[in-house]
């Protein structure tokens, strides 16, 4: 199968994720959209690795997974604590830092 198709899929997933981040307000959904973007880029990396015939892309994909896992841990903790204090997971409500 032509590897370029995987790239199309990756671009599609990334676009869906990006649109989600821009449009949705719920923090959890936002979070899932970020994950979608990360995985889209992982897919692209692995595809490139396959196309170029070396392992560089796959190694970076692993790094991305580790970072994403760490990010989920911290991010979820923040979201939970915000929900506990404000009873809302809407990111638009967390705007106290602006002047």
């Amino acid at each position: 199968m032509n590897p370029v198709n995987y790239l199309y899929l990756s671009a599609l997933l990334f676009t869906i994720g990006a649109s989600g981040v821009l449009i949705r307000r719920n923090a959890i959904v936002l979070f899932m959209c970020v994950e979608l973007m990360l995985n889209a880029s992982n897919l692209a990396l692995v595809t490139f690795s396959r196309m170029h015939g070396n392992l560089d892309g796959q190694i970076i994909a692993f790094f991305t997974m580790v970072v994403a896992a760490a990010e989920v841990v911290v991010g979820l903790a923040i979201i939970v604590s915000i929900f506990r204090t404000r009873h809302s997971a809407s990111v638009d409500d967390s705007n106290l830092m602006k002047l």
């Binding site: 990006a18 981040v21 821009l22 990111v91 638009d92 967390s94 705007n95 106290l96 602006k98």
Partner: peptide, 17 residues
């Protein structure tokens, strides 16, 4: 210029994109 900073995450995300 301060008005640009409206505190909505999506605005910042859009500018990043």
């Amino acid at each position: 210029l301060r008005r640009i900073q409206n505190g909505y995450v999506r605005t910042y995300a859009l500018s990043m994109f």
